[in-house]
Design a protein around this nucleic acid. Structure first.
Lengths: 346, 346
DNA sequence: TTGAAAGCGCTAACAG
DNA sequence: CTGTTAGCGCTTTCAA
């Protein structure tokens, strides 16, 4: 597969290799005539610069690492939209994306794996890194800092770090949910949180939403009932049973788990609970996942694709980063609680 | 960030650069003494060869492209396990994975995108490609053939192609389902197939399973009832209504849609159908997705992770490729039909 | 407005 | 068993 080189293009166009290079980079003014001849030669020979040679010479690769931790499936959030966002953002800037695992926790990928992150950085295959699903105390932060690699965390870490982040405003999300439900008259609100594993792994979003909901409820003078839930039908049913025994007049649920919403609706149905007549439900979830469910949900959108894009943008144009705003979309899964409606009915 | 070069290592170890190279590659017998000195120097300086320089010199990159088509979300199969399999397989061989989109259909990623596949191949960033979700008439096959890039299709294309493939044995899968249900005594079996979009996009798996189920039913002397289903609750309910009007005594469902199984159980519940007492259900699905549902399902496992791994292996050790076998796992979502049970009961 | 030439870091002949 | 050297394809001084 002997592929075309810049020298061949130069020869064909009757110019020096450097001229071809300058035509491509635009770093020099070139006469219209030669520019045309060079472009023609490029077309005819299907010339494409050799990425390796470029990276050797220029010291940059136009590749970013996308670092996905594989903690195991069950507690896995829905990664595809984030990946898609990163891919899209990178594409906008002409960057390519190297998918890399950080062999944290000797998870499924046991082997010698080690940190492929460290490898691609050390061998200068990438110019930057986007760290997905960043934990409060994520090891990868130390890695990129030590190696001096520009990086963006998708997820807000706890400690001070030079690595800027993009995350979702879970505080507002929690508050929006509580305020919406309280405005409808709900006084007994439960939180179905991500699985225990998400808390154990110090995934910030789990802790932050928990705190936000607890805080907003306290501020409204309401009691907090919540617990982590495994995203299985059995898990959902157990959780509901637990919450209902703790607070029999539970009238509303805030749900924070990518995989849980469909399952929860099923579990509620099996318990004979009608949404929203018997119980209101507000998930905090990527909008696309609400489409599989009935009734149309009132939900707080987690803009996963936008977050992925924002992470790449932050890599391109450094800054402190920040939180993407939470917005509540009104659907038909919430209504005033039965207790306040019945009087009117009768 | 001036990072260590082979020359610095050589100087530190008191040898020639080539010696360091040979120590690393093992292409020459080196005395134990120098080998040790070199290794020490490498450690001390944290030396890691420059990937760009290597690829320039060696003509290979140790990177494979993983080409994901983004057709849009609704008809999207669950890609993560395939991606994970590819990542894992690549990791085993010390390869890295470049995630690339093939800008097919001016889908969400409109822009000038074009085929990033063609770009990474032409600029020699990758040594091979794994094409995910290959269509019967996939454009990407022509691309890799034209550019002479080793590739493996994840999905069996229709026409003759020099590109080897890895796919799932949907023929056996369909047959297993029908035989299992027929053995239980079912005579009225329905197929809930992937969404219309999957057929329109010529995704082979949709067509193949459709044909397999139809064939197996015919062979068993049974009528075929099937239709494509959107993976939404509304879609599932419509489909069920349609099948039941076509065949009121429908007693079993074969379900082939990654996203549908949870939704279907919900829809059946809403229609007052108990699984398996009223209706048997056999999904063809990645095992992990059955964990969210009750009762424990009888299902045919689609070994998505293994398929991803197999694709990389096929890239490493070329061969004709083939189909991964279907296996039926017995759970509690199938039982003899009500009509054959009632006599015994009374 | 263009060319010539050096050199990025690495590997693989050649030479000892 | 080890060192010297050329050159992969590209960009960018330095010179004209």
């Amino acid at each position: 597969m002997p592929s075309t080189t810049i020298t061949q293009v130069a020869r064909r166009a009757g110019v020096a290799p450097s001229t071809v290079s300058y035509v491509l980079s635009g770093n020099r003014t070139i006469s219209e005539a030669t520019r045309a001849r060079v472009h023609l030669a490029i077309q005819e020979l299907h010339y494409k610069p050799h990425a390796g040679a470029r990276s050797l010479r220029a010291g940059k690769t136009n590749v970013v690492a996308l670092v996905v931790p594989f903690y195991g499936w069950s507690s896995e959030p829905i990664l595809m939209p984030y990946i898609y966002g990163v891919l899209d953002g990178a594409g906008q800037r002409g960057w390519n994306v190297m998918l890399v695992t950080s062999g944290e926790d000797a998870s499924s990928l046991d082997q010698e794996a080690g940190s492929t992150l460290e490898e691609v950085v050390a061998s200068r295959m990438v110019d930057g890194a986007v760290l997905m699903e960043v934990r409060l105390d994520d090891d990868r932060l130390e890695v990129v800092e030590r190696l001096g690699m520009p990086a963006v965390a998708l997820g807000l870490p706890l400690g001070p770090s030079t690595v800027p982040y993009v995350d979702f405003d879970f505080e507002s999300a929690g508050r929006l949910c509580v305020e919406h439900l309280a405005a409808l008259g709900h006084r007994h609100i439960g939180l179905l949180a991500p699985p225990p594993g998400a808390f154990e792994k110090n995934l910030g979003y789990a802790h932050r939403l928990w705190g936000a909901v607890a805080g907003a409820l306290a501020q409204a003078g309401l009691a907090f009932h919540g617990l982590p839930v495994e995203p299985t039908l059995a898990g959902a049913k157990q959780a509901l049973a637990h919450l209902l025994s703790e607070e029999p007049s539970l009238g509303a649920l805030i749900v924070h788990s990518d995989a849980l919403i469909g399952i929860l609706m099923q579990a509620l149905h099996q318990l004979g609970k009608v949404v929203p007549a018997d119980i209101s439900v507000v998930p905090i979830v990527w909008a696309e996942l609400t489409k599989h469910v009935e009734p149309p949900l009132t939900y707080v959108n987690v803009p996963a694709v936008e977050m992925g894009r924002a992470a790449v943008e932050l890599l391109a144009e450094p800054g402190p980063g920040g939180l993407l705003p939470a917005t509540l979309v009104e659907g038909r899964s919430t209504s005033p609680p039965a207790s306040t409606r019945r009087p009117r009915d009768s």
